[in-house]
Amino acid sequence: MTKNLRQLDIAVDASISFASGAQARAAVKALIPDNVNMPKGLSLQLFSKGRGVFVEIRGKGVPMATVINTLDEVLEHLSVAKKVMA
């Protein structure tokens, strides 16, 4: 049986608050190495502003599962970073 994977154009934006701007910048710096070798059609931008970390994921003609898995991984890493800095 062949799965029918939907190819979509999708954009996801998320923001996570940290206790300080320094922690937000450290979290982004720690995740920068994860922002390489993205699948074709998928882009990931991470940046900090004030106490927030902002995640922008854009997918063009990629399976929805790819976008969801990428977001899940980034949020998991940010959660770990937040716990380590607490």
Rank of each mutant, 00 (worst) to 15 (best):
R58F: 05
A86K: 12
M64P: 02
G59V: 06
K40W: 03
N37C: 08
N35K: 11
V67M: 03
V80W: 01
V12M: 00
S15K: 13
D34E: 15
G21A: 15
P63R: 00
A14L: 11
Q45L: 09
A30D: 13
S15F: 09
L42N: 02
A81C: 12
K29M: 10
S48I: 04
M38K: 13
N35F: 07
G41W: 02
A27H: 11
F54Y: 13
L31M: 13
V67H: 03
H77I: 03
K49V: 09
R51K: 14
A14I: 08
P33Q: 10
Q23F: 08
G41Q: 04
P39W: 03
S79W: 05
R25I: 04
G61S: 10
A14R: 13
T70A: 14
S79I: 04
G21M: 06
Q7C: 10
V12Q: 02
D34Y: 09
M85K: 08
K60I: 05
L71H: 11
M1Y: 05
M1S: 14
T2L: 14
A11C: 12
G41M: 06
K29R: 13
S17E: 13
S15A: 13
L42I: 10
A14T: 10
L75M: 15
G41R: 07
G59T: 01
N4R: 07
V80M: 03
A26S: 14
R58S: 05
G52C: 08
L71N: 07
K3F: 11
G61H: 03
E76D: 08
K40N: 03
E73F: 07
S48C: 03
P63T: 00
K82C: 03
L78Y: 04
R25V: 08
M64Y: 12
E76H: 06
A26L: 12
A14S: 12
N37E: 14
K60H: 05
V84F: 00
T66C: 04
K82S: 14
A26E: 14
F18S: 07
P33S: 12
Q45D: 14
K83P: 06
G50S: 11
L8V: 15
I16Q: 11
A27P: 08
K40V: 06
G50A: 10
E73R: 07
V55S: 07
Q23T: 08
D9M: 01
V55H: 06
P33G: 13
T66W: 00
K40F: 05
E76K: 08
L42K: 02
Q45C: 07
I16M: 14
I10M: 06
M64E: 12
T66F: 02
V28P: 07
N69S: 09
T70N: 04
A86I: 01
A22D: 14
D72Q: 05
G61C: 05
R6I: 12
F54Q: 05
I57F: 02
H77V: 00
V62M: 01
P33N: 11
L75Q: 13
T70P: 07
R6P: 08
N69Y: 04
G41E: 01
L8K: 00
A24V: 04
I10T: 02
Q45A: 13
S43T: 15
R25Y: 03
E76S: 07
L75E: 15
L44N: 11
L5A: 09
P39F: 04
A81D: 08
P39E: 05
L31G: 09
T66D: 04
Q23K: 11
L78V: 06
K3G: 15
